[in-house]
Amino acid sequence: MGKLVTLAEAVASIPSGSHLALSGFAITRCTMAFAREVIRQGIRGLTVSQCVGAMDADLLVGAGAVERLIYGGGSLDRFGRLACVNRGIEGGSLHAEEYSSLSIAFRYLAGALGLPFMPIRSLVGSDLLRQLQERSGADVASIKDPFTGESWLALRPLSPDVAVVQVQVSDEDGNAWIRGPRWDNAEQVRASQRTIVITERVVPGDVIRQDAEQTVIPGLFVSHVVKLPFGAHPASVYRVYDYDAAEIKRYVEATRTPEALQAYLVETVHGVPDHAAYLEKIGGQARLSELMADPGLGY
């Protein structure tokens, strides 16, 4: 069976309670269309991880789909904070495990390499570490370097059930290119049991083979490929489209109170059957053409 499926089919492969590694960083390459479909399908009890908390995780938390968040802190850059995540942490409804960017990246790296743990210099002496140690079944521990006797902090590997990664280009087998910085995405894919690739463009395998050094995600890790232009909207995708500042500001306003958020979810998620209808709703081709990236600048 082919890997190329609709967004709804790919999302339907995810059981409630799964651990998802999401590819967003603040307001760029966020898995926004994916998050909206997860909410539509009523999938809940998720664990979400990413190095820097992003808009995709915040929307899922706001919709009540997330039980546990493993992240290194995050924001919507100048647009604002992760209001849903913060409200969940303050009220106790979200079980958040807070690290730093590199400590999450190292947990993915350990998972990717099949190592039992990863030593790290970060976190030592901080209240982040104290909080992590106070949790039952802590994923941090002290060890001694067997060669020098030096003390180190060790991190347990992360092994998400599914990595969901928004990319620019993929073939039908999921051999995918990520243009621009990749933050934690390569390690997320390799640490996870399987990967769903959400791609702006699907190209023939021959195109990938001509420039295979650009391939960041090998198809062998990929279970599903979803062709989905503007899948990250209102976040940006480098060299394809810019972030939609007006729409991100609307989200920031909508996440100020739970009531406003419910209205936003009804309008933007539940009130539209699919991604195509969402794009029409936010202004269709006229709006989207204004966001297209300048090929020289990349934004």
């Binding site: 960083f25 307001i27 760029t28 990246a105 910085p181 934690d184 972030y243 934004y299």
Partner: peptide, 29 residues
Amino acid sequence: PGVGLADPRVWYRANVLSSFVDILGSVLH
């Protein structure tokens, strides 16, 4: 100028576009 590190405006004409493990790992750590 950009709105933050996630804004491609601040990545423009970089020498290297890579990852956390590269920058925070191989360089910083």
